[in-house]
């Protein structure tokens, strides 16, 4: 006798596939944001399942800040090639050269500058919906996000005036110039993502697993020492056994000391964790409304 029961991961999977198909059916020019990070790896797998035996009917878009971990870009390019997908990369440094993104005096981080770069790419290709791997459990402004997040002509999110989203009836209508962001992984937690990676045997970039890396202690975090982030006077460089839990720019991604060498190790580590995933992202800690402000400006 069949029990007609689906488990939590199957529920999340079926929900995400429904959202992905809704995007394809309702929009003329959708795109999928693909960075090579763990969330977008799950997204890619879900898209394969949603559309097979057809291939994924939309291009991939990545905004390269120029401060990415090299392991991530290598992985991104290889996966796109394996799937025969069209990968569009737009670089922050090109946007700076063209005057689309203008750094503040002394601004080293490329975090804010990805926003105008992304908006320019959406405009260039006239994408009416971009799919992202953002999850509500990542951050408290994201906890307020809808599956289909409406953006006005400036790419802005208006959190006080979001469209009600009732049942699974998504209002996907936009006027010319406006666009939508869609988040099929809205209800996934960090744990769900890793359980899915285990279940589907998905390959992830090596930096998620334990490795040796030279780091400096800054603002309570272990930051990787690179050309972009040399040690300051008095800072001691230490070689540690670390992994990254969430991947942002190489200058703002904190490493966590960890011996986790397999997906099972990572799952055990998360289950016992006392700090959230985004606790290691300096870009989120700059103020209490850091994420909200970036999202209002057009960030994911």
């Amino acid at each position: 006798m069949h029990s007609y029961h689906i488990d939590h991961l199957q529920f999340l999977e079926t929900e995400a596939i429904h959202v992905l198909r809704e995007v394809t059916a309702e929009f003329e020019r959708p795109a999928m944001l693909f960075s090579g990070g763990k969330d977008s790896i799950c997204l890619l797998r879900l898209a394969e399942k949603a559309f097979r035996p057809s291939s994924i009917p939309m291009p991939f878009l990545n905004i390269d800040t120029g401060h990415h971990f090299p392991e991530l870009n290598e992985f991104r390019d290889r996966r796109a090639k394996e799937l025969g997908a069209k990968l569009i990369v737009r670089k922050v440094e090109d946007a700076i050269a063209q005057g689309i993104a203008v750094p503040a005096p002394g601004e080293v981080s490329r975090n804010r500058l990805q926003i105008p770069t992304l908006l320019a790419a959406i405009d260039e290709f006239q994408f009416d919906c971009s799919i992202g791997g953002a999850r509500r459990d990542e951050e408290k402004a994201r906890a307020k996000e809808r599956f289909f997040s409406f953006r006005d002509g400036f790419g802005q999110w208006d959190p006080k005036n979001q469209r009600p989203e009732i049942w699974n009836l998504y209002n996907t209508r936009v006027n010319p110039g406006e666009s939508m962001r869609a988040f099929p992984l809205s209800n996934w937690t960090e744990m769900d993502v890793w359980e899915y990676i285990r279940q589907e045997r998905l390959e992830v970039p090596s930096i998620y697993f334990s490795h040796k890396r030279c780091c400096v202690r800054r603002h309570g975090q272990w930051l990787p020492v690179t050309e972009l982030l040399p040690p300051k006077n008095g800072e001691k460089v230490e070689e540690l056994v670390v992994r990254v839990r969430t991947i942002g720019d190489i200058i703002s991604t904190g490493c966590v000391e960890s011996p986790a060498a397999t997906v099972d190790d990572i799952l055990a580590e998360i289950a016992a964790a006392r700090v959230t995933e985004r606790g290691s992202r300096a870009d989120d800690k700059s103020s209490e409304a850091a994420m909200e402000d970036r999202k209002k400006a057009g960030y994911f």
Partner: peptide, 9 residues
Amino acid sequence: IDVAYRYFA
């Protein structure tokens, strides 16, 4: 003002 989604297991 708006719904916040939280997750626990």
